[in-house]
């Protein structure tokens, strides 16, 4: 199981357009990626509803996890995505 921690860079937090971009990218990996807030249960990162319900704010640290071939590289790309201010782009 590969895991990564990353702080949400988007100024609006992980909802609206940033959440949508993230979910699309997570789905595109073809892997069962999960996302969790500190101390919270991991949720399916391919679900826009669950990701929005997570309500991760700007600056909040989330944990990404995935299993399977290419999981490390997939998580690295998702970490890179969340490290950008997606709303400003």
């Amino acid at each position: 199981m590969a895991t990564r921690e990353v702080s949400i860079a988007s100024s609006v937090g992980l909802h609206a357009r940033p959440a949508s971009l993230f979910v699309q990218a997570a789905t595109a990996t073809g892997l069962p990626v999960t996302i969790a807030k500190a101390g919270g249960n991991p949720v399916d990162a391919r679900s826009i509803l669950m990701v929005m319900a997570l309500g991760a704010k700007h600056g909040e640290v989330v944990t990404l996890s995935a299993e399977g071939e290419g999981a490390e590289a997939a998580l690295d790309s998702l970490v890179a995505l969340l490290s950008r201010d997606l709303d400003a782009e």
Partner: peptide
């Protein structure tokens, strides 16, 4: 497209 994404959402299917 956002609507289509919600219709395909695994979280919704699970619910």
């Amino acid at each position: 497209e956002a609507g289509a994404m919600m219709a395909r959402d695994p979280g919704l299917a699970m619910g």
